[in-house]
């Protein structure tokens, strides 16, 4: 018999979801941003009022950082 437990490695590729491994998961910490331009927050608030963005400014900053990291890593 082929070892059942080594076979398990190839199971489940066609499942709807695949679990994130610990290292991929976002582990978070608090981070203060100094000298954030007031204008940036005002522009965010205006976008939010116009319904063009949703969520908090904090989440927006995090997303912007991740986007920037992705693009720099792909240079």
């Amino acid at each position: 018999m082929v070892d059942k437990f080594s076979k398990l490695n190839s199971i489940g590729n066609n499942a709807a979801l695949s679990e994130q491994s610990e290292s991929d998961a976002l582990i978070t910490k608090k981070k203060l941003v100094s000298n954030l331009p007031v204008k940036a927050e005002e522009r965010f608030n205006a976008l939010k009022k116009a319904g063009k963005v949703s969520g908090s400014f904090n989440a927006y900053i995090v997303q912007a950082t991740l986007n920037n990291l992705d693009s720099d890593e792909n240079k």
């Binding site: 398990l8 199971i11 590729n13 499942a15 709807a16």
Partner: peptide
């Protein structure tokens, strides 16, 4: 209660 890789592995075993 969802279809995922690890749930499928447990079922397979």
């Amino acid at each position: 209660g969802f279809d995922s890789e690890l749930n499928r592995i447990a079922i397979a075993a």
